[in-house]
Design a binder for these strands. Structure first.
Lengths: 214, 214
DNA sequence: TACTTGTCGTGAAATTATTCACTTATTCAT
DNA sequence: ATGAATAAGTGAATAATTTCACGACAAGTA
């Protein structure tokens, strides 16, 4: 699958999954046509931004009409590789990890947690949300060729586990620990820091009383 | 508390809680001095960006020396209002909600979940992580003057609960549902969409093979 | 057919954010 | 005391992103 490196801006790329899911919902609801204005209102993204984002992929709409939902959806399905499934490993079956195991990512999505690991022997062997928990010691043997990991371990373990993951061939990590892990250039990390997000919200509430963003 | 509206860029504001936590950790470790270069390596933020960010608040460092950890920490403590505690309500005690109740936000942080709500009568009356769960019907009576809510309800309930929260005086919502909720201008919403984050990571892995960001 | 309306796609402008690179002040070693 | 090394702060350049606003064309209507 040719890496479609025609300079889609990162900001645009981050919105694609949102667009995809929303179009999918429209399709399920039986809507066959949609305008950038409607999309804008529903997704809270400026309509010009939506048109601009779509335009990076070519002329997907029709003037005076809008976008054909099915066509657009099919287009994004291909673009986002929704046909091939992406297996994911979850490391750390604590509260947050358990929540993800029960969370049905596959719903509108090509990603599925296939295997989980934890250091607590009492959790090993059990299945949570249909996913078997292995011991963290056996991680390398049970990872297979999975290249995406969700990291929900204690912060003290984060770097150590990261190093092992990378050695085992993982090239993408969704990091929920507060640790800013160090990885080679070739590995992509997205951080989601829940405490920071909450604190950031509070800061914005106090200091930016009226505007709205993101 | 004067709203310090001296045009701190949003991108900077979003990084402040990260800076704060990191400085706090340094302080705990007994480090008294730090340079933008060290901070950069640890937090994976360009050192010029760090210096620029700090400079919006004035000259906080010393040339040839760096920053005094304690001073900087004290400064950010004030800036981020870490002295006053911010009470938070959690709506929806499912998997994700439960994880948050057990998550100790207060650790490095001025925020604390004070009360939780759920529609499931079996959960009502119990305490999880020391926080009592009330029935969602009694939300308005038990919110007190809380103005921040974490929303972890099913997507179908999101808008409805949001409307009630706003009517009850909530002005900031951390929304974990996939719904892009509609709120008045005066209410701030931050979305964290876990499925989108995961999918976005996968997209970047496939299409932006070498670069690194955020 | 002719007119009106809707809506895309996009150049250009505006805004926002990042990064370079240099000046200046300070520290540290000798 | 002196010189070398360090590192902040910042003007200016660059990059990235958003937004405006309009031309062009399709769809619907009379």
């Amino acid at each position: 699958m040719m890496s479609n490196q025609n300079k889609i801006p990162q900001a645009t790329a981050k919105r694609l999954p949102l667009y995809y899911r929303f179009l999918n919902n429209l399709h399920i609801k039986g809507k066959s046509r949609v305008s950038s204005k409607e999309l804008s209102e529903a997704m809270k993204v400026d309509s010009a931004t939506i048109r601009r984002d779509f335009s990076y992929f070519g002329a997907l709409g029709k003037k005076g009409y809008g976008y054909n939902v099915e066509y657009l959806l099919g287009f994004f399905r291909k673009t986002l590789d929704q046909d091939e499934n992406t297996p994911v490993a979850l490391i750390g079956v604590g509260n947050l990890g358990t929540a993800f195991l029960n969370y049905n990512f596959t719903k509108n999505n090509n990603t599925k947690i296939e295997v989980a690991f934890d250091a607590d022997k009492r959790k090993v062997g059990k299945s949570i949300g249909d996913i078997e928990v292995h011991h963290i010691e056996d991680m390398e043997q049970n990872l297979g060729d999975i290249s995406v990991a969700i990291l929900t371990v204690p912060v003290s373990e984060a770097q150590n586990i990261t190093d092992r993951l990378i050695k085992a061939g993982v090239t993408g990590i969704l990091n929920f620990t507060p640790a800013r892990i160090t990885v080679p250039e070739s590995v992509r990390v997205h951080h989601i820091d829940l405490a920071v997000e909450l604190q950031s919200l509070v800061y914005f509430m106090k200091h930016y009383p009226l505007e709205n963003e993101e």
